[in-house]
């Protein structure tokens, strides 16, 4: 069985974002694999290593050449091959549609995406991609396992979880808990990454629907109101009578 993991290249989550117009100031920004995508990849690698019958793990991204270091990191930690669609990821639909076009020619049994990207917080690429490929999708996935050649998918629901079984192609959007820690690439992996296939293709002509036309900074919050540790009653009073939240 083959797994296709969608990766997005995002600024490190500790970045203090600054904008020049609607463009992110990229000076000094460290780019990383979107944390949820990285967890998805980590789980795919765990499955492959556990002898669950995974033959190949491919990663796919929509991005320009500057996304290649993060793709190569994915190869260094164990993905078998990579696809890069040479275009900016304009919006969720554009991204999903580009991947869908390419995925038609890639053999896969499972597609994994992170539940959202840490930059645009679009939360949509996975669901859109599944719709375009006309395959089922599961969101809020907290575990993926293989049993007798079938996918066992744990989905978080309010107050608990469900286990779903799929015996054909499915897309999962994964969240925290799917894998323990992202991998640190070993040096051998880093050296091998250059030798693994990284296929670059051109985007198909498509419209994007959304464009960011302005950036607005959040209003700075008013100053914290501090209470004496000996006077807990005043905090309780403030929450009741001033903030009206108790």
């Amino acid at each position: 069985m083959n797994i296709l993991v969608c990766l997005s290249n995002v600024p490190d989550t500790t970045t203090k974002v600054k904008f020049n117009g609607t463009k992110l100031e990229t000076e000094g920004v460290q780019w990383i694999i979107n944390p949820w995508d990285e967890l998805a990849l980590t789980r795919a690698l765990e499955l492959k290593e556990s002898g669950a019958g995974i033959d190949n793990i491919s990663v796919i991204t929509v991005g320009l050449e500057d996304a290649e270091p993060t793709i190569r990191k994915a190869l260094a930690i164990g993905a078998d091959d990579a696809y890069r669609i040479n275009s900016e990821a304009f919006d969720s639909f554009y991204t999903a549609a580009q991947i869908a076009e390419l995925a038609k020619n890639i053999p896969f049994d499972l597609i994994m995406t992170g539940f959202e990207s840490a930059d645009y917080n679009g939360v949509a690429v996975g669901a859109m991609l599944a719709e375009l490929l006309d395959i089922p999708s599961v969101g809020a996935v907290s575990a993926v396992n293989v049993k007798d050649g079938k996918w066992l998918i744990d989905r978080e629901i309010d107050g608990g979880k469900e286990v779903l079984q799929f015996d054909s192609r499915v897309l999962v959007s994964v969240q925290k808990g799917i894998a323990i820690d992202p991998r640190i690439p070993a040096m051998r992996g880093i050296m091998n990454a250059r030798r693994k296939p990284l296929n670059v293709s051109n985007p198909v002509a498509l419209d994007s629907f959304n464009e960011i036309i302005a950036i607005e900074l959040p209003r700075s919050k008013s100053k914290v109101k501090l209470f004496d540790p000996e006077d807990v009653q005043s905090l309780l009073d403030a929450l009741r009578n001033e903030a009206h939240v108790l």
Binding site: A97, V123, A124, M128, G139, A140
Partner: peptide, 21 residues
């Protein structure tokens, strides 16, 4: 979790722009 899982699919089918959050 539920809204997002459905909304993306709906938008893709309708060729509609989807804005989350």
């Amino acid at each position: 979790n539920v809204g997002n899982a459905i909304a993306g699919r709906v938008a893709a089918r309708l060729k509609a722009g989807f804005v989350s959050a």
